Computed example of a mutant assay.
Amino acid sequence: MEITGIISGLIIGIVIGALGRLVIPGRQRIPIWLTIVIGVVAALVGTAIAAALGVADTGGVDWIELGIQVALAALGVSLSIGMYGKRRE
């Protein structure tokens, strides 16, 4: 893997993680690095799911793939809020 692939993966992970945080209402008390990790994992898993469903390569913007990724990021953020919040208290 080239360095540009790693950098673009991190940027996409940051965007997906931020969108996942925006979907969840209220304040999330998790660190930004955890949001980035959740975003990167959600982007990778969401792409794999979209490829399995056959909607990964469409003409134009892949809205279905993006929706899957954001939904996975929101799920990851909500799960980590519960786990991280209980550990911190």
Rank of each mutant, 00 (worst) to 15 (best):
A52V: 02
T35F: 07
L10W: 03
I12S: 00
M83Q: 14
G67M: 10
D62M: 09
I12C: 00
I30A: 10
G26K: 03
S80V: 10
V55I: 08
G5D: 05
G46D: 02
G59E: 08
G9D: 03
A73N: 12
A51G: 11
G85E: 06
A43G: 03
A43E: 05
A51W: 13
I12F: 01
G5L: 06
A56V: 02
R87C: 07
S80T: 10
I64S: 06
A43T: 14
G9W: 01
L75N: 04
K86G: 00
G54R: 14
I64T: 15
V77R: 04
T47C: 04
L22G: 03
G20D: 15
G20R: 00
G17V: 00
E89S: 12
G54H: 06
G46N: 00
V15S: 08
L34F: 10
A74N: 06
Q28F: 00
K86V: 04
A50V: 05
G17R: 00
I16G: 03
A51E: 13
T4Q: 12
G67Y: 02
W63V: 13
E2A: 03
T4A: 14
E65Y: 06
G82A: 03
G67F: 06
L19G: 13
V23D: 08
G54S: 12
I14V: 05
R27C: 10
R21D: 14
I16P: 07
I68L: 05
L44V: 13
I68W: 06
Y84C: 09
L22K: 13
L72C: 10
I68P: 10
T4V: 15
Q28W: 03
S8N: 13
L66H: 01
